[in-house]
């Protein structure tokens, strides 16, 4: 191993720590401090504020749906991509990753163009059938699904490749059908990867801003999620509420990180 001289090593170490400290650790710490400068009262007031509580409930609802949908879709696509051959598989596996590189604003625009009730490709038909997508929760769930789409797949696919199909074939030869094999053999083997993917999706879903902003219409009390609320409150000079809500979001995302850090060694085993 290349042994660096002590000053160089210290220099690199300080650069790394300093950069991360000034860019991430200190700013995040300041927001936490801001939240508590007025004492715990501000946090309590914020939580009892009906607009905040409503926004948090909406965020939880949208994120839950998006995670559930992405979980089912992600596991299905992962198994198909790894265990089956079909024409167009390579293209599909490349397209699956596309959502990670698309700007949230473009995601919002794309959904708007197809599903808005007046001029969208499918929007008027959907509204005729009684389904309002844009400026309502279905659109928000879709936007959230879009941005978090590949996260489960990216966790599950490598594990499926790694474990191979020997165990599944053994189960087949012992008389298990496709569903039984999946439930009793495949699922327990990919369990941790799935949990990991779900936690990542959850963090991403709770935090989505740009795409949701466009498709939700940002109607206070109806389609305003927690992240949209932070923007609105900050710009209305209710900075305390903005900080307190941000603190809650930071808390959740750090909890997600801790869960992931805790799971990672398990998954690696």
């Amino acid at each position: 191993m290349v042994e660096l001289s002590t000053p160089v090593r210290w220099g690199l170490r300080l650069l790394a720590i300093g950069y991360v400290f000034f860019l991430i650790a200190w700013p995040v710490g300041l927001v936490v401090k801001h939240t508590f400068t007025g004492g715990l009262g501000v946090l309590a007031d914020t939580l009892t504020d009906e607009s905040v509580a409503g926004a948090l409930r909406l965020t939880a609802m949208v994120a839950t749906w998006a995670v559930l949908i992405n979980l089912v879709f992600g596991v299905t696509i992962s198994v198909l991509l790894v265990r089956y051959e079909f024409p167009g598989k390579r293209v599909l596996s490349a397209l699956i990753d596309l959502p990670l590189s698309v700007s949230p604003v473009v995601v919002g625009l794309a959904l708007l163009l197809v599903y808005n009730g007046r001029t969208g490709w499918f929007g008027p038909t959907a509204e005729g059938a009684g389904l309002t997508v844009i400026f309502d929760s279905p659109g928000m769930v879709m936007a959230t699904c879009f941005v978090a789409l590949p996260l489960v797949i990216r966790e599950v696919v490598p594990v499926l490749v790694e474990i191979g199909d020997d165990q599944e074939q053994a189960a087949r030869s012992l008389g298990a059908g496709a569903v039984q094999t999946f439930r009793r053999i495949t699922l327990p083997s990919i369990k941790w990867a799935v949990v990991y993917g779900v936690v990542l999706s959850l963090a991403r879903s709770l935090g989505e801003f740009g795409a949701v902003k466009i498709v939700s219409g940002n109607i206070t009390g109806r389609t305003q999620t927690a992240t949209l609320l932070v923007e609105a409150k900050y710009q209305n000079f209710q900075q305390e509420t903005a900080y307190a809500t941000s603190f809650l979001l930071i808390l959740v995302s750090i909890a997600c990180l801790v869960v992931v850090a805790f799971l990672r060694p398990r998954a690696a085993r």
């Binding site: 720590i17 991430i24 700013p27 935090g207 949209l228």
Partner: peptide, 24 residues
């Protein structure tokens, strides 16, 4: 340090803006 690196992945982007605003 290893965990803090991931904070930008997990933090909502709007909160990231607010966070930076508090120091800069």
């Amino acid at each position: 340090l290893d965990v803090v690196i991931d904070v930008p992945f997990a933090l909502p982007t709007i909160v990231a803006g607010l966070v930076l605003l508090s120091l800069y």
